[in-house]
Simulated scan of single mutants.
Amino acid sequence: MIQELNDEQLERYGRHILLDEIGYEGQLLLAQKRVAIIGLGGLGSPVALYLASAGIGQLTLIDFDQVDLSNLQRQLIHNQQRVGQNKAISAQQSVELLNKNVKTETITTKLTDDELLKITKQHDLVLDCSDNFETRYQLNRICHKCQIPLVSGAAIRWEGQVTTYDFRKNKQPCYQCLFPLKSNQGSIQESCSQNGVIAPLLGIIGSIQALEAIKCLLELPTLAGKLTIIDGLTMELRQFNITQDLSCPVCS
């Protein structure tokens, strides 16, 4: 584990170190953290790039999908030369070009609950950048079980949403409190591929996810207990309180 920042890191992260809320100690703390990113698509692209540029010590990039030409409209971590390549591998190449100080690992297979549980326990925070409900419910269950913070984002058409589930704290609501599984069955297959999405919206939501992750790792105030919704068409921003469902099968 890194014990101090070298001269190159001090220069690279100087604008962070100038912030009272981060400083030298905070930047050193970020360099000691391990973060897992699930999904290296529209949301995972800005998340991975911003966390790499921010100096997170290790990023584990998880995606079993391949880069497709239609992805390049919004998945800016990939490029035309990498069409057909695994997304996690492609993202790793971009991260390594951006910041050599960040260690990266890739997982290119679909994970079972047991495999994801083992991986989650090895990290300080998980970001849900997936594009399907099955993965979101799976990550919610496992992060709650491991008491690992989960930063969740989603975007479709013109609307995006983001929140943080800080399972390090007691009596925190979870994803299933917000979206009960039974009531969500009708939209379980909804995704960008069927409904479309405006490209810059993914950058907005993914950037907020990266910001939430940094704040959570530094134990600064986050969106825990709140859901932020952004309408990209009207540029309206709404925020709602999330309360724990006392009958939730995951967190109650």
Rank of each mutant, 00 (worst) to 15 (best):
E105G: 09
T112G: 12
L127Y: 02
Q3K: 15
S187C: 15
A36N: 02
S193T: 10
Y137K: 02
Y137Q: 01
I22E: 14
G44T: 09
C174Q: 02
L116W: 15
Q27L: 00
D65H: 00
I56A: 03
I77W: 00
A213K: 01
N132D: 07
R12K: 07
Q194H: 12
P149H: 07
L178M: 07
R238S: 10
E21W: 12
I208S: 14
G26F: 01
S252F: 13
D131P: 09
V47G: 02
T109A: 15
G153R: 04
F240R: 02
L217R: 05
V250G: 07
L127F: 05
L111H: 01
P173M: 11
G42N: 03
E212S: 08
V126L: 00
S152C: 09
I62K: 04
C174S: 07
D131T: 05
L139Y: 02
A154L: 03
V83C: 03
T108A: 06
N6R: 00
A155L: 04
N132F: 00
S187V: 15
G14V: 14
Q122A: 06
I156Y: 09
L116V: 03
E219T: 14
Q27W: 05
G14M: 12
S45A: 09
E21S: 15
Q85W: 15
A52F: 01
I156D: 06
D231P: 15
T234E: 13
E219P: 15
Q161N: 07
R82A: 10
P46E: 05
S207N: 12
I89N: 10
A48L: 07
T104N: 11
Y13P: 06
K215D: 08
N195F: 11
K33W: 02
G57T: 02
N195L: 11
K226D: 10
G196M: 06
L233C: 14
K100G: 09
C192V: 11
E25L: 08
L233N: 08
E8L: 09
I38R: 00
D65A: 00
T222W: 04
A210H: 03
L72T: 06
A213D: 08
Y175S: 00
L217I: 15
C216L: 10
G44Q: 05
S152K: 02
Q66V: 11
L223G: 12
V126D: 03
V102F: 01
E236R: 11
H78F: 02
N132L: 03
R12P: 09
L43G: 01
S183C: 14
D68R: 11
V83I: 10
I22R: 05
G23H: 08
T243W: 13
L237N: 13
G23M: 00
D131E: 08
N6E: 08
C143P: 06
I142A: 01
K169S: 04
N170M: 14
C129F: 13
T60N: 09
K103I: 04
Q75E: 10
S70W: 12
S90M: 05
R74P: 06
D166P: 05
L10E: 03
S94R: 09
K110R: 15
C216W: 08
A224D: 13
D7K: 14
D68T: 10
G186T: 15
Q209L: 05
I198V: 12
S130T: 06
T112L: 06
S130W: 01
C177N: 01
C192P: 09
L150P: 04
W158H: 08
I205K: 02
V250Y: 01
A210I: 05
P221T: 10
L49N: 07
Q138T: 11
F64Y: 12
L98S: 00
P180H: 01
L202F: 12
K110M: 10
L49E: 03
